[in-house]
Design a protein around this nucleic acid. Structure first.
Lengths: 250, 250
DNA sequence: TCTTTGCGTTCCGTATTACAGAACGCAGTT
DNA sequence: AACTGCGTTCTGTAATACGGAACGCAAAGA
């Protein structure tokens, strides 16, 4: 048996936190217990601890639980420590402005794309608070841009994993995907051809850190009719040009 | 002894997470152990568990730890569930625009102001990602606006607590503070006269939920010379007017 | 080069304590 | 009034978290 120097009750507790989702932000004790295959009493203890510490709140109306605002304290620290958003924001605005399309920015996090910011061109002035939203690597523009430049070992873990089809365009065959990633490396940018969401095309360019490892990606995204081959190339060049000063500086 | 149905190891583990801060985003095992008065081995176990679950990452260079991006997944859910930012954003833009000053938006969280958004007028186009930043209730515009309308029991807990002086203007005397809160209730808005940060004045108006309880506040803030009495009143009326449609709707 | 120092990690026995299971109290239904 | 399903409480015991000491390593100092 492998000696695990881990605190099992803690791992269990974190699993409880992870039961909550955007679709199910409020959960009952029994619900969680069934999901995790644990006893109600155990869940109850864990939740009451989380409640005392502020990470979970019980709705007095429904007596169900939801995540508490204390979590945001932690996210603020992470965010500040990453500091990427503040560095990238002006560049993202420039990309959105010049491309006249929505511009997304994401990083690698636990084998997924973690969205940090969405910026829209000024004729549709707004910024979405998508920090924390996630998507798979193998079927998104941002994801594939990073996947193509990840260390082989890491990339193969993804490619060898489950490749769920989101649309009829999703590349679910590991072999096809590998060829596709080769192409991305040749081009220096990735194209998401409605692989994640039908009707949405997307071009993404990877960003490399000082250590040479891919650490983030920036994309331009919009309705597929506006993204023919020429436009895609133009957008890719645009992103590359604007991101130039940031490459290998982080 | 009071029967605590709480998981002690979990409470301890969360304390470990809370050691991290903006000022100290990276911590070593020994450092944390000293701070919490616990054994190194215990901290090590907890951290290795958090690392396996993605909530903490070890820097291979320094072998110190910092919070992981997984936290942001959770914050996304909280954020989505609150949904407040998206509701308020257009109103905040309007406030910032008309006041031609920075506009802040915060909610009550664990007896502190939790900042959700900062919006600047278009002549200094930007939005800061301050989600998760915190400040005391008793010495900030947003905080006092909420403190004045909190249930007595809750408010007294704050007023009776430690009232640290941030500047020479900070109101640290519970009696003075209580009178000041009375005034805020009479006016319907709060004024922060450099109590938290020297040179910065701020006007804030509370926002009430459907249940009649205060749940958030919106402020306008800037350099003190621009905030004389007349301007302050004007800003307060402006915020109140713009927020009108949201009052008692949440 | 050989200590010394201080770090993060590993290990183990035991005292702690987390957890399963059953019972309870309370709503809302039947 | 009985039933159903919820969240909560209780308790003994089996699991395990933790304290303490040792270890391995790297950097600093002699």
């Amino acid at each position: 048996m492998d000696q695990e120097y881990s605190v099992k009750s803690l791992a269990r507790a974190m699993k409880v936190l992870e039961c909550f989702s955007v679709k199910q932000p409020e959960l009952g004790v029994t619900e969680i217990a069934k999901t995790l295959g644990m006893q109600k009493s155990t869940i109850c203890n864990i939740l009451s601890t989380f409640e005392k510490t502020g990470y979970v709140v019980q709705n007095p109306q429904t007596s169900k639980y939801h995540l508490g605002t204390k979590i945001l304290h932690l996210s603020y620290i992470v965010n500040h420590h990453l500091g990427l958003r503040d560095i990238f924001l002006p560049y993202l605005h420039k990309v959105a402005e010049e491309a006249r399309e929505a511009c997304y920015f994401g990083i690698l996090s636990n084998d997924e794309v973690l969205y940090i910011e969405a910026v829209y061109p000024s004729h549709q002035q707004q910024t979405r608070n998508i920090l924390g939203e996630r998507a798979p690597l193998y079927c998104t523009g941002l994801g594939k841009a990073m996947l193509a430049y990840m260390p082989d070992e890491d990339a193969e873990r993804i490619i060898g994993g489950e490749l769920k089809a989101f649309t009829s365009f999703t590349l679910c065959d590991p072999m096809v995907l590998r060829d596709h990633l080769d192409e991305i490396r040749r081009n220096g940018y990735s194209v998401d051809n409605m692989e994640h969401e039908f009707g949405i095309r997307c071009v993404a360019v990877p960003v490399f850190g000082a250590n040479g490892q891919v650490m983030a990606a920036v994309s331009v995204s919009g309705p597929s009719p506006r993204f023919d081959h020429n436009t895609v190339v133009k957008h890719a060049e645009l992103i590359s040009r604007i991101l130039q000063p940031l490459q290998h500086c982080l």
